[in-house]
Write a protein that binds this DNA or RNA. Structure first.
Ligand code: FES
Ligand code: FES
Lengths: 160, 160
DNA sequence: AATTAGGCGACTGATTTTGTCGGGTATTCA
DNA sequence: TGAATACCCGACAAAATCAGTCGCCTAATT
């Protein structure tokens, strides 16, 4: 399991984007300056966000990025997964037959890591950009966490 | 946030230790062979575990390690923190005045990461070595998670 | 045509992680 | 006493990952 600057920057950038957009596209240069992140790095991140259908790009002068789904429907988990690729905590790869244990079966700790990953995913799924924008993370999110993600299951790369 | 092989190996080793000890010390060489982990690496890890009062060492022939607290009182969170040092997800250092935001106050996402860290810690605190040994991770742990850690608060390095 | 701003891939330096090595020290047993 | 066992410890090296840069391109607006 890892959570580096990629995931953090992506969330920060999207929150900034959501906060400064009034229906108009927001340029990366603006976000870069406000959030103190390198422009080239942001471009890299937004490339992945775009490919994951989280943002929409508008080219040319006056262009920039827009959130594809609304602020209330963009889950933090999706953002992190888009740029950080996996939250998986298990050592064994899901498809492969041989895990970290030498025999065929799963090792004793497998379930533990898997459940940990589930937990993290649930939490991050329960928080939206809008929640962060409203500083509504502590109370609201926690109460919703026990109920699981809002709606719609992730298709792949979730297993954790 | 990070969770590397150090944390995973440490938990695997302690579970193995708990499972193969009958009051007698278990040597690292045995664990190393069973779990397929380098002996030298294990020594490094157990050094930290010992310094964190999770295991007790017995030197000399027939020596090895014992769990200091019982299997039911050794929390996974303590093990991971002992070898992996921190689960903290925030970018800013807790003591320092300046976080990742340029102005003095916390950035919008600070609460999010902090709350994520809390969540992870709560989950890992709710599971003990005994739970893993009994493959009792999925149901039992989750039900207890909402109630928080078993007892006794961590003194420091927890903030995450 | 000129300017703006996204799109893409390769590349590099720094840091972290993972794991090894070599040489100790304490304890037991013969 | 001394040999064997097994913990103890710090330094070190290979490998992987991360963070960030660079150059050049394409699309749209004016
Ligand atoms: S983590 Fe999947 S088998 Fe060990
Ligand atoms: S994470 Fe603490 S101020 Fe941004």
């Amino acid at each position: 399991m890892k959570l580096g600057t990629k995931g953090r920057y992506a969330v920060m950038a999207l929150v900034d984007l959501a906060g400064h957009s009034n229906g108009q596209p927001v340029s990366l240069a603006d976000i870069a300056e406000r959030q103190n992140i390198s422009l080239s790095y942001l471009e890299q991140l937004f490339g992945r966000l775009r490919r994951n259908n989280l943002v929409k790009s508008v080219r040319g002068p006056g262009g920039g990025y827009l959130l594809q789904r609304g602020t209330a429907h963009t889950r933090i988990a999706d953002v992190v997964l888009a740029v950080d690729e996996n939250l998986r905590a298990t050592r064994c790869t899901p498809g492969s037959p041989v895990g970290c244990a030498q025999d065929s079966s799963r090792c004793l700790t497998h379930d533990l890591w898997e459940e940990l990953g589930n937990h993290i995913y649930m939490f991050l799924s329960s928080v939206t950009i809008q929640d962060v924008l409203d500083r509504r993370v502590l109370g609201a999110a926690r109460s919703r966490t026990t109920a699981g993600p809002l709606e719609g299951a992730r298709p792949d790369s979730v297993a954790l």
